[in-house]
Design a protein around this nucleic acid. Structure first.
Length: 829
RNA sequence: GCGAAAGUGGCGGAAUUGGCAGACGCGCUGGACUUAGGAUCCAGUAGGUUCACUCCUGUAGGGGUUCGAGUCCCCUCUUUCGCACCA
């Protein structure tokens, strides 16, 4: 018979709810512990990845609960965004309706899992009581000078009259109508995240983040040091600033490379409408698929602009080329090209027959343009570089930069790969940007008392292809709050990453109607102690959230520098070695598993399969193993209730125990120790569960518990009695049930963490391994405190050791206390 | 191409600080039991060798350091992820 998991799980879910164990009070006497799992997009169904994420969060929460913390683990929904809008379009409905339906059905599935979640703090980003404060934060950022508008090129579909995300562009064509995607210059709203670039590189205030994630973020930010140098357009005062990390090569510049998007190029395009070569090239490059254009495989191309600029250091005339391999978004959007010492410039100048000039010699001194097949990018000795000749190129970097600064041609500078955060989306289902465009006053912020700018409901998504907000005149047309003139609302909505970059703070005070959150509450709850989510958010979400946290800190809203003190990036659940997805048809429905085997089985399976940060391979048969494990536990305790209850009244006299019962006593304490290390310190739940299984096997090995004497019974009762406590973080329902069955009246978390005593971990004898030249040749069973001399003597006596030493002479004997005796020997002469 | 991580039985994985490789689970093999179950219990399970004891081999491959290497160093291969002309 299977244990009655369904009855047990319902019973304890109701009890927990009644006892409000997951509803964390603000400002309790206890120390807080804030556990947060990334909130889901409400697709309508929990998938196995969610279950895995929340099983981990639940284990951590319940462990911290046992430890006595005031634990808060909230949950909510990341409910704005393109998927919800598209879902509504295909189902001919409204995203507000479908989203709320999805949330309701997900909530049911959440409840069936019995997760430790404080639902009284639920947030949903698409509800006005939440997005109102996103608008408020936008305004604060605007006031701090962290918001600006800038023209930039976006994927644009002309027939659909809409902007497309990179993922909506398939082979350069619109995913919906199939027509060619072009690049259109649009005014977009930006957050000045680059202002925090330097600080975002500093992780000294996080307690425990995966090294991997920090490395990825550092690379994403991409700090590089170099020089900003101004070249002058010939016969003009126009300066062309460039950024270079190789100022030591500046005497080797033979051309200047600009992208078609460069403002100067745009100006020339306007001045020379009849220059077909220039016009056609720029149009072609700008409209090229972004991904394709940025590929290293793409052939480097360019056209000569017919213009020259001047190298400030030597007055040399430099050709200006317009090319497809320079990025407008990085550095100053202009490159001084040094073909002899940069591979890309080398390739380009070979193709277009542009001169090269060697200004850094290799140590052999035999670099020659006529024989070079690739650029020389290593350091070397300066050559043909005026008074810097003969200097090592590394030293010349700073010498030349100083020379440039001294003469006012430029300066030492730092550039980041990180770009400002474009938050504009030309979509309906997002948080409206609280801006009004007035013909007289220009850009005007919506006053606080008019927040939130509500998304109008009378919109039919999918009926218009452009942003539906444009089709609601009663929403669009307003009077200017400053001058009363007729004005229009901003129709861009915010990137959903804005919503998710501060939600963790809203949970601290989810129902505040006067502020995003009250500072007393945020001071108590923030920062998040443990954050859990997928590695795919390593760069974007986690970086944005850190940025917004630092901004809120600067406003004095929150304390500390980091929103998430500990981060755990959990692995994916795979099936047949591949990511589960509907299109592959390899999904597993967690609800089905819960119905068949219970939430506890599913959790134990997910946690036992691998350490949390690694991927889990789904395996139906291994799932049965977890189910059997819980059944075995239930049978053990249910079948020996009388013995356990009786034994709990006794205290064991250790001296009177049989060797078998001594081992069981050892197992209880050893297992508890290992469980504490694995689950609390290492957060490696798979081995913590393995330790319970091992201990369970020892308990089951005692066959006739009813006939044990009182001392043995006491040991047996303890051994069985600790199992519910050990099980609680991983399979809480069955754990509570068993706890109650053995007569304990408290809820399990109130029992505290299970403890162990060192004295029971001492063994009479220990086993030492004896090695000869690294190979095991025998074992010694000795008292733990045996003297080293004696150990060596005993080891030498072992027959096998003798045999291995035959014809050898001992060079050295190493004793590793408690572990081994290693004999090093060499052949006799 | 650059960067990061990883590679251990038939499978998921363990080995925490350089110290008994394969804990625990799945699967498999043999046996017991029969309320015939998605059961339970017992024994076995890296490969080779041997009746057995033993011995040999073995953590992607090759080298190295060490009394001792899955773990540290160098080279190579493979896989996954991230980035993609970053001046």
């Amino acid at each position: 018979m299977d244990y009655p998991f369904s009855m047990i799980e319902q019973k304890w879910q109701q009890t927990w709810q009644k006892r409000r164990i997951a509803n964390a009070p603000d400002n309790a006497d206890k120390t807080k512990y804030y556990v947060l799992s990334m909130f889901p997009y409400p697709s309508g169904v929990l998938h196995i990845g969610h279950a895995s994420n929340y099983a981990i969060g639940d284990a951590i929460s319940r462990l911290k609960l046992m430890e006595g913390y005031n634990v808060m683990q909230p949950m909510g929904y990341d409910s704005f965004g393109m998927p919800a809008e598209n879902y509504a379009i295909t189902h001919n409905s409204h995203p507000r309706i479908t989203t709320e339906e999805h949330i309701a059905s997900m909530r049911k599935q959440f409840d069936g899992m019995g997760f430790f979640l404080d639902w009284e703090r639920e947030v949903s980003t698409c509800r006005p009581d939440y997005y109102r404060w996103g608008q408020y934060i936008f305004k604060k950022m605007y006031e701090q000078g962290l918001v600006y508008r800038k023209k930039s090129f976006q994927n644009w579909c002309e027939p659909c009259n809409t902007v497309l995300a990179n993922e909506q562009v398939e082979d350069g064509a619109c995913w919906r109508c199939g027509s060619e995607v072009i690049q259109k210059e649009l005014e977009q709203w930006y957050f000045r995240i680059t202002k925090y670039a330097e600080e975002l590189l500093d992780f000294s205030d996080v307690i425990e983040w995966p090294e991997r994630v920090m490395t990825m973020q550092k690379h994403w930010i991409g700090k590089s040091e170099g020089a900003r140098i101004e070249f002058t357009l010939e016969h003009s005062d126009t300066k062309i600033p460039i950024f270079t990390t190789r100022p030591d090569t500046i005497y080797g510049v033979t051309f200047m490379a600009l992208p078609p998007e460069h403002p100067l190029v745009q100006q020339w395009l306007a001045e020379e409408p009849d220059n077909r070569e220039l016009q056609d090239f720029c149009k072609k490059v700008i409209n090229e698929d972004k991904v394709l254009r940025q590929s290293a495989e793409t052939e480097k191309e360019g056209v000569f602009s017919g213009r020259y600029c001047v190298n400030p250091l030597n007055g040399a005339q430099v050709q200006i080329w317009i090319t497809n391999y320079v990025l407008m978004d990085y550095g100053t959007g202009a490159v001084m090209a040094v073909p002899a010492h940069d591979q890309r410039d080398f390739d380009f100048s070979k193709k277009y027959d542009i001169p090269m000039k060697i200004v850094i010699q290799n140590p052999a001194g035999n670099l020659d343009i006529s024989t070079m097949s690739e650029a020389y990018i290593e350091p070397g000795i300066m050559a043909a570089s005026a008074h810097f000749d003969g200097m090592p190129s590394d030293a010349a970097k700073s010498a030349i930069t100083e020379w440039i600064a001294k003469n006012g041609w430029g300066e030492k500078t730092v550039t980041y790969r990180l770009r400002d955060w474009g938050i504009s989306r030309q979509r309906y289902w997002g948080n409206p940007i609280p801006i009004i465009h007035c013909p007289k006053c220009g850009i005007v912020l919506v006053p606080d008392e008019d927040l939130p700018v509500l998304l109008p409901d009378n919109v039919q998504v999918g009926k218009t292809t452009s942003n539906p907000l444009l089709s609601v005149p009663e929403w669009l047309n307003v009077t200017c709050p400053q001058c009363g003139a007729d004005a229009t609302r901003e129709t861009d909505t915010m990137d959903t990453f804005v919503d998710s970059s501060w939600y963790y703070a809203r949970y601290a005070d989810a129902h505040n109607t006067a502020l995003p959150f009250d500072q007393d509450k945020s001071d108590y709850w923030l920062p998040v102690d443990q954050y859990i989510g997928g590695i795919e958010h390593a760069c974007m979400h986690l970086l944005y959230a850190r940025f917004i946290y630092k901004f809120m800190r600067d406003l004095g809203w929150v304390k500390g520098n980091e929103p998430f003190l500990r981060l755990l990036t959990q692995g994916m659940v795979l099936k047949d070695g591949a990511k589960m997805s509907k299109s592959k048809g390899n999904t597993v429905d967690p609800q089905y598993i819960v119905d068949r085997f219970g939430s506890d089985t599913l959790r134990v399976y997910l946690l036992f399969a691998s350490p949390p940060e690694k991927d889990v391979e789904w395996n139906d048969e291994a799932l049965m193993g977890s189910f059997r494990f819980l059944n075995r536990i239930y049978r053990l305790i249910d079948g020996n209730l009388d013995a356990i209850k009786k034994g709990m009244q006794f205290e064991a006299d250790v001296a009177k125990l049989s060797p078998e019962m001594k081992q069981l006593l050892f197992s209880s304490h050893y297992c508890t120790k290992k469980w504490r290390e694995d689950s609390l310190q290492r957060m490696q739940y798979n081995t913590a569960i393995a330790a319970i299984m091992e201990h369970l096997n020892h308990c089951i090995a005692i066959k006739d518990a009813a006939n044990l004497d009182d001392d043995a019974l006491a040991v047996y009762a303890e051994a069985c009695g600790i199992i519910p406590q050990l099980l609680y973080p991983f399979a809480p329902h069955i754990a509570e049930e068993l706890w109650q069955m053995i007569g304990c009246e408290s809820l399990l978390h109130e029992s505290g963490l299970p403890g162990y005593e060192e004295k029971y971990l001492l063994q009479d004898t220990i086993t030492l391994v004896v090695q000869v030249n690294g190979k095991i040749r025998g074992k010694l069973e000795v008292a733990p405190d045996t003297a080293h001399d004696l150990l060596q003597e005993e080891a030498m006596k072992i027959e096998n050791v003798q045999r291995a030493l035959d014809g050898f002479e001992v060079v050295k004997v190493i004793v590793v206390p408690g572990k081994m005796i290693s004999i090093a020997a060499k052949p006799k002469k």
